[in-house]
């Protein structure tokens, strides 16, 4: 961390936010209703990322054939090390400041 700047001021371009999240656990929202939480080991300008100790949550919607109710199902799994292709990423957030809703 630079001595002369506090982190929030050193966000001059959006990718700086990712740079400041290196080695932190981040929350990644992907396309296809996929959410990842893991430690950010590396990223590049495309937002390709390498995440470690990942918990992946996938949400699927099924329509009950009789009642036509939408049934949301979430499945979780753990992945020790994961490469994420940047074009599937919607949002990245450092989760430590994410209050549960």
């Amino acid at each position: 961390m630079e001595d002369e700047q506090i982190p929030t001021i050193s966000v001059k371009e959006p990718l700086d936010l990712i740079r400041l999240s290196l080695d932190e656990r981040v929350h990644v929202k992907m396309r296809n209703e996929r959410v990842l939480r893991g430690k950010l080991h590396a990223y590049d300008q495309h937002l390709n990322m390498v995440l470690g100790d990942v918990e992946e949550t996938v949400t699927t919607v099924e329509i009950d054939e009789e009642t036509y109710e939408e049934i949301y199902k979430t499945t979780k799994r753990s992945i020790p090390m994961l490469f994420v292709r940047g074009d599937g990423v919607i949002l990245v957030s450092p989760p430590n400041r994410t209050p549960a809703l």
Binding site: L17, I90, L91, V92, P94, T98
Partner: peptide, 27 residues
């Protein structure tokens, strides 16, 4: 690409999530 602070996520007009900082991929 966008960096936001004090972010609120609205899905179908309903508040679903709050994030401190967020990076949103421009595409």
């Amino acid at each position: 690409n966008i960096a936001l602070e004090q972010t609120e996520e609205y899905i179908n007009g309903q508040l679903k999530n709050k994030y401190g900082d967020t990076f949103i991929r421009g595409n």
